[in-house]
Design a binder for these strands. Structure first.
Lengths: 333, 333
DNA sequence: GTGAAAGCGCTAACAC
DNA sequence: GTGTTAGCGCTTTCAC
């Protein structure tokens, strides 16, 4: 492996000059600069990441905490963030956090041991120790897809409540009055989407009926299936259901199918997230789309500005959502 | 940040001794070892990754090349590999490769510049330069989910052809004779699955009819939709269809739905991969499952053995597959 | 068994 | 503008 000394020797200059050229510092004669760049190009020299990061005391890598079982929405999001971060010159280290206190702690230990330049939370962890660390972390932290009032760091997300309100209002607009809700738990977006559901009901003067609500522990299709089965078993006379996520909605559609009912003829379904597969279901799932690309780019941008020393100021951003109307929701019969 | 000197001072020994203890070298009195470990634990000291990797000339990170638009199967796979690699003490750097020559080259440049300890290919790239590099790469390379005859490196995968043969045979066993095929392209698994389809047909003495085959450029549901539409438009009188991947199968089911037909009453569908959502479709998708966990663990294991200097020998592994029978395939009417 | 010292590749003061 | 030098945190001879 070539070192900076080799390049210096080949170009007939000192290592410091090479360093200056590589790091785009001024005070180097254009002529020399060109000569050095030529050698660099020719030899394919790449500075040692390890050495730079040792002397600069920066790792040039940002950590992204994501759920171990991330969904398609998160998949797209972190691929976008990774790509953006790369263009800003940062490495990305992923920290898959399982949704168990024990594993979160393990994840936190790793996070601490990495000397990261920044941390992006794509996942709302549970453990208080985690937040305690983030609150006083020696590097910038950005929250993506959720907010956390008492944490003084920027967050990039949509207005979950407004989006859920729109989704529910869509069902109401179609003529539904008995609208089921498959409620998630633990994460703040679940609470926000739930309150959007209630708000929409309230503005239409529909009484909230807890028999129409099934709370499920997680966000996989399996839970949607179980939640919808429960709702169906209660026979609350529902004609539509709003699920906290598309995965949950898919499970719900499955339960409806298993019960010998049809979507949307018997029961309308609306989801949230617009994951890849939703457009191709039969029927296509009506859902709420978040501007993934914009959220990802913004998150990376905020992080890179924070790392370059910008004040925390008002870097947070709230993006708009979009209701994607497909076939899974129709007027009640 | 604590350095090894601080620990040495606190423990009243020299840095070299601390280093020996941390690196599990012998020649340290148990008593001293304990004293040092106590200080390490107490201070939460973690050796600087950068410094270690500089002096050892190893990055302790392995790169994983994955498609930029990875599917759920790959999602699970790389999360498993990451986790395993972590337990072996390696970092994982992801290289998202878009499926364009230009971007592959970009990806290759990054790969070269990283001083990786190993490379795992979870993605069959196209560019010859990429393979040229891999063939003489200064670090071990492991191919995961595909094989490449002329590349002298271990690969971990299933017997794609046999699996596709089973999937097709399942349809034949159900009584289907006119079986459509949505063929992928570019990747070797596509060719292998295609030849499995033909082999199954041949053993049942069913003539291969190219009017039953739609070749699509990629592997997203969109392509499955287009491919199936084409098949339907040709009116070849098919009663079943086998799709190269589950995503393609989902798109195909959508096309059947749009045509006013039903699965499996009018047309049976079989996919390949058993992605998360397949079990929750209505009807559930009959498909071929690969042992993701085993493939992932094996890949990480092979890589870590290679890095620790084991000879290339016969580290490759071929895993068995499993036909998952659900409701999307039934006897023809 | 343990410590002292050199050196990995780089950057940043500091000279010149 | 450019070179010299020190030093980042670690591992590894080489003495003792």
């Amino acid at each position: 492996m070539m070192s900076i000394k080799d390049i210096a020797r080949l170009a007939g200059v000192s290592p410091s000059t090479v360093s200056r050229v590589i790091n785009q510092k001024k005070y180097v004669k254009p002529e020399l600069r060109e000569r050095i760049m030529a050698v660099v190009k020719e030899t394919g020299y790449v500075p040692s990441h390890a050495a730079r990061s040792m002397v600069l005391k920066r790792s040039f890598t940002v950590g992204i905490v994501i759920p171990y079982a991330f969904n398609m929405f998160q998949r797209q999001l972190f691929a976008i963030i990774e790509r953006q971060l790369e263009t800003h010159g940062y490495h990305t280290l992923f920290f898959f956090a399982k949704w168990e206190p024990e594993h979160e702690l393990h994840c936190l230990r790793r996070l601490k041991s990495e000397n990261l330049d920044g941390i992006i939370m794509l996942h709302e962890v549970i453990h208080p120790d985690f937040y305690a660390y983030l609150a006083h972390a020696p590097m910038p932290v950005v929250l993506c897809t959720f907010d956390r009032g008492n944490l003084a760091c920027p967050s990039v997300h949509v207005d979950e409540e407004a989006a859920a309100r729109d989704a529910t209002a869509h069902l109401i607009g179609l003529g539904h009055r008995r609208i089921g809700f498959i409620a998630g738990s633990h994460f703040s977006f679940a609470a926000q989407r739930a309150s959007g559901y209630r708000a929409a009901l309230a503005s239409a003067s529909i009484a909230y009926d807890e028999r129409l609500v099934a709370e499920v522990p997680s966000y996989i299709a399996e839970d949607g299936l179980a939640g919808m089965r429960e709702l169906l078993a209660r026979k609350p006379g529902l004609s539509a259901v709003f699920a906290t996520t598309d995965e949950l909605a898919i499970g719900a559609m499955r339960a409806i199918y298993e019960a010998g009912l049809r979507v949307p003829e018997d029961i309308s379904v609306v989801g949230f997230d617009d994951i890849d597969v939703s457009a191709y279901l039969a029927p296509g799932l009506t859902t709420v789309a978040q501007p993934i690309e914009a959220i990802g780019r913004k998150t990376a941008e905020v992080m890179s500005r924070l790392i370059s020393g910008e004040a925390y100021g008002d870097l947070s951003a709230v993006f708009g959502h979009r209701l994607v109307v497909r076939e899974s929701a129709a007027p009640p019969r």
